[in-house]
């Protein structure tokens, strides 16, 4: 005989996602790893910026103390660029999903050797899928979320993406060496970003020429060191 049973679930799936991100943060904190997440549109220069940061990091940290997780819809191009520095790296292909989610990071940590291996790492860099909207909505428990926008995207980038601007901890304006050539008013970009998010420091950089990288790196290093001593 076939009959019907009712199962009460009472689970909030949105809250669940937030809780999962919090659990990830606890995992990072227990392992003593600082997680820096880079977010921004396609072509904003996230990978090149990370290359410059990793080069600078390697003067202060051992090669096996740094890990990189790269998220892309397809290809391993970004991770190949980072792999040449010899740091630990994992590529995640989301296969169409426009952002990374907590299970992607859990899988990547497993690939890095799990929670035990995480303890040997000081800094983990996550490069989210190139997209200036969705990744900002799905927290991954990172200690700092770094929004990368470049001048060639247009000077109204921040006001067009108020939420992304607001939820970021650090704002990087990349490709500043191009600003004069394409008639971009940097002052306006800075004041827009400040209006939306008065708390985030803003860094003007050119990942290509190296301009501003040292200032950005020093700030990231304070986050890493502060986190390490708190542990």
């Amino acid at each position: 005989m076939v009959e019907k049973v009712v199962r009460f679930i009472g689970k909030d799936v949105i809250e669940e996602n937030r809780r999962k991100a919090e659990a990830l943060r606890r995992l990072y904190d227990e392992a003593g790893v600082t997680v820096l997440e880079f977010l921004g549109g396609p072509g904003s220069g996230k990978t090149t910026l990370i290359e410059r940061i990793v080069e600078r990091m390697l003067k202060d940290y051992q090669v096996d103390e740094i890990a990189y997780i790269g998220g892309d819809v397809a290809t391993t191009l970004d991770t190949e660029r980072i792999a040449k520095y010899g740091i630990k790296h994992v590529q995640i292909n989301t296969g169409g999903t426009c952002h990374l989610e907590v299970p992607h990071i859990e899988a990547a940590i497993k690939a890095l050797g799990g929670a035990e291996a995480l303890k040997t790492i000081k800094v983990m860099i996550i490069e989210n899928v190139g997209n200036i909207i969705c990744p900002f909505n799905f927290p991954l428990g990172a200690h700092a979320r770094i929004m990368v926008a470049d001048v060639a995207e247009g000077e109204d980038k921040f006001i067009k993406h108020p939420l992304s601007t607001r939820v970021s901890d650090i704002i990087v304006i990349n490709k500043v060496d191009l600003a004069d050539y394409i008639g971009i008013n940097l002052e306006k970009m800075i004041s827009d970003a400040k209006k939306l998010n008065p708390w985030a420091p803003i860094f003007l950089v050119s990942a290509k020429t190296g301009q501003g990288i040292e200032e950005l790196y020093s700030y990231l290093k304070t986050i890493i060191e502060r986190h390490a001593t708190r542990k």
């Binding site: 005989m1 076939v2 199962r7 679930i9 009472g10 799936v13």
Partner: peptide
């Protein structure tokens, strides 16, 4: 008024198995 909650589900069960 926030969130997306799964209140409950109905499942058809085979009485013999259960």
């Amino acid at each position: 008024g926030k969130g997306v909650i799964i209140h409950s589900i109905d499942i058809e069960v085979d009485d013999k198995d259960s």
